[in-house]
Nucleic acid binder design. Structure first.
Length: 254
DNA sequence: ATGTCGCCTCATAGGCGA
C-alpha cells in the first residue's frame, strides 16, 4: 500500500503536475493540501481511477484525499473550536486504516493571533491523536504540518529562528505527538540523513541550492508503525516547470 | 527588508497568505 502527501499550492494551477505524478507513481492514496479554491475536480480524478473526498474553501486552505479504494469520510472538521471555519482537516477510513489529512496552520507572523491559532490547533489535534492511541487504532496522520521538527530538518536554523514553523512552542507540540507513541515515518527510516526537505521557497533559487525545510510528515500510530516499509521524498515534481513550492512525500506499508 | 507564487477584487494593480 503506497500512500503519499503533497501540498500542491492550488489544485487548479497544479492539475497537470498532479496528473503526471499520479500516472508515474501510482499511489493507492494521495493526500492533498492547499487546494486554494471552492471547486474540487471530483469527476476528473474519477476518470483517472481515483475516488475523492475534499474539504474546500474559497481562496485559501483546502484538503482532499484521492484513493483507489473506497473512502468513508468520518469528519471534515477538527474538534475543539466550533468557530473554526478553515478547511484544514479531513478524517477518513480507507481499507481499515484511519487516514487523516491535515493542513496545519502556518502561524506567521509570530506574536499575532495567527500564531495563537496555530498552537491552539496543535493542541486540538493532540486530543484526537491521544484518542487514536487509546483505542489502539491503525491510523496515520499525513500532510503539511508546518513544523520543522529538529535543526537537521532545515538547511540553516539561523534563517528560521523568527518563523512560526521553527518556534519552540510549535516544535515541542510536534515532539509531544512523538512522545505519545507516534512514529515520524521519514525520520524513523532515515535517522541520520540531513538535507532532506519537502518544501523550498520560490525565492532566490532556494530549490537549486537545496535551502529548504522538512515540514510535510507522516505520523503513524503504534498499531500500524510495524507495517512501514519505506518513506521517501520525491523531489522530481519540485524541479519541473511551474511547480508547487512543496514536493510529495511517499510511504509504503506492508 | 527582500525575494516569488496564486488567489481574489471596490479587477488588468494591489493586497493577502504563504
Amino acid at each position: 500500500m503506497k500512500i503519499a502527501s503533497w501540498n500542491v499550492n492550488s489544485i487548479r494551477a497544479r492539475l497537470e503536475p498532479v496528473t503526471k505524478w499520479l500516472e508515474k507513481s501510482k499511489p493507492d492514496i494521495l493526500l492533498l493540501q492547499e487546494l486554494k479554491g471552492s471547486e474540487f475536480p471530483v469527476d476528473y480524478f474519477k476518470t483517472l481511477g481515483y475516488e475523492s473526498s475534499a474539504v474546500t474553501q474559497k481562496s485559501y486552505n483546502g484538503v482532499a484525499i484521492l484513493s483507489r479504494h473506497p473512502i468513508e469520510t468520518i469528519s471534515t472538521t477538527l474538534n475543539g473550536d466550533e468557530t473554526d471555519s478553515h478547511a484544514r482537516f479531513l478524517d477518513t477510513l480507507i481499507d481499515g486504516i484511519r487516514v487523516i489529512n491535515i493542513y496545519l496552520p502556518n502561524g506567521n507572523p509570530v506574536g499575532t493571533a495567527k500564531f495563537d491559532y496555530k498552537l491552539a490547533w496543535m493542541d486540538r489535534l493532540s486530543f484526537l491523536l491521544a484518542d487514536l492511541i487509546k483505542k489502539d487504532e491503525p491510523g496515520l496522520i499525513g500532510g503539511d504540518f508546518n513544523v520543522i521538527p529538529e535543526d537537521v530538518d532545515c538547511h540553516k536554523p539561523s534563517s528560521w529562528v523568527y518563523d512560526a514553523i521553527f518556534q519552540p512552542e510549535s516544535r515541542s507540540r510536534y515532539r509531544a505527538y512523538l512522545a505519545m507513541g507516534y512514529t515520524d515515518a521519514f525520520r524513523s527510516l532515515h535517522p541520520e540523513e540531513s538535507g532532506k526537505f519537502t518544501y523550498w521557497d520560490y525565492f532566490r533559487k532556494a530549490f537549486e541550492y537545496n535551502r529548504g525545510a522538512r515540514i510535510d510528515h507522516f505520523l503513524l500510530s503504534p498499531k500500524i508503525a510495524s507495517r512501514l516499509r519505506s518513506c521517501e521524498i520525491d523531489t522530481g515534481p519540485r524541479a519541473e516547470e511551474k511547480p508547487s513550492d512543496h514536493t510529495p512525500i511517499v510511504i509504503e506499508l506492508s
